[in-house]
């Protein structure tokens, strides 16, 4: 990309972010730019700062210094999780977190973009439009059959999918996905890659993942994190050939 190119505003702009916990630098001058509509895979060894990065973007952790901007000019470092979520950033946890004592339908219902204020929610009724949207999401996540089952009774893979469906229901502009295929079978992994590619048609996505076959299947630009900063960036095969990346992954 040329400098001065009239590119659209980045959906996510992270610049010079540092986070320290009791003297330990979890993020060290991290910079990252995600273009609208892009899907980016983030890899890195344990402790590289992947989860802390997600925490900073979603408002769970405040950076010591640095800029985090959404859609070009919305400063995320001053907002709390709920405000950031309402702004259009969805986050999927490493461990599937769904509401186990609610049905699949209620899980999606609660996730649907819209009412969030207690008083409005108290008097809310399901609208025809909401019902239609839930049905669409059920098809997307292949959970139509399980609609009235308790989320706690679903298989591990189904829970992961339900959580992705809940994220879609929030209609986020940017999706942060933390290790979506951890603990999945090969077939589920493949299907999840397809699902994410499908989702990427309408959303910007950042995926953190360890599983290289999965990252390969996504076929997108890769960022390698190491000790809280970006070590390398580029297509997967190029990154895999990078000597420093090999060194970090295979030990010194």
């Amino acid at each position: 990309m040329l400098i001065g190119d009239i590119s659209p505003k980045p959906i996510l702009y992270v610049d010079g972010v540092t986070v320290t916990f009791d003297g330990f630098r979890a993020l060290n001058d991290l910079s990252l730019v995600i273009a609208p509509g892009e899907m980016r895979a983030i890899i890195g060894p344990n402790g590289a700062g992947k989860t802390t990065m997600m925490d900073v973007i979603t408002g769970k952790t405040r950076p010591d210094v640095g800029t985090v901007a959404f859609n070009g000019d919305v400063d995320l470092t001053k907002m709390d999780e709920a405000a950031i979520a309402q702004l259009g950033i969805g986050r999927k946890f490493q461990k599937p977190t769904v509401f186990e004592s609610h049905t699949v339908r209620d899980n999606l219902q609660l996730a649907l973009a819209g009412l969030r204020k207690p008083f409005a929610v108290l008097f809310a009724r399901e609208t025809a439009k909401e019902k239609e949207r839930i049905d669409e999401l059920l098809v997307l996540t292949k959970l139509t059959e399980a609609v009235d089952r308790m989320a706690g009774d679903l298989s591990h893979g189904q829970k992961q999918w339900l959580e992705i469906g809940m994220l879609m229901a929030q209609e986020p502009a940017l999706l942060l996905v933390d290790e979506p295929v951890a603990g999945m079978t090969d077939a589920e992994t493949e299907e999840t890659a397809e699902l994410l590619v499908e989702i990427n048609k309408t959303h910007s996505v950042v995926v953190v993942e360890h599983d290289m076959t999965f990252v390969k299947a996504l076929g997108v630009k890769v960022t390698v994190l190491h000790e809280g900063s970006v070590l390398a960036e580029g297509p997967l095969d190029q990154v895999q050939a990078n000597e420093r990346v090999i060194e970090v992954y295979l030990g010194r």
């Binding site: 999780e81 979520a85 977190t97 769904v98 509401f99 004592s101 996730a111 108290l122 929030q170």
Partner: peptide, 21 residues
Amino acid sequence: SRFGKVLIAIRDAESRTRFMG
């Protein structure tokens, strides 16, 4: 009510509820 469902959601997965807005 849906308010009650949010309460149960908070009980079962508080941070999920937060990240949902």
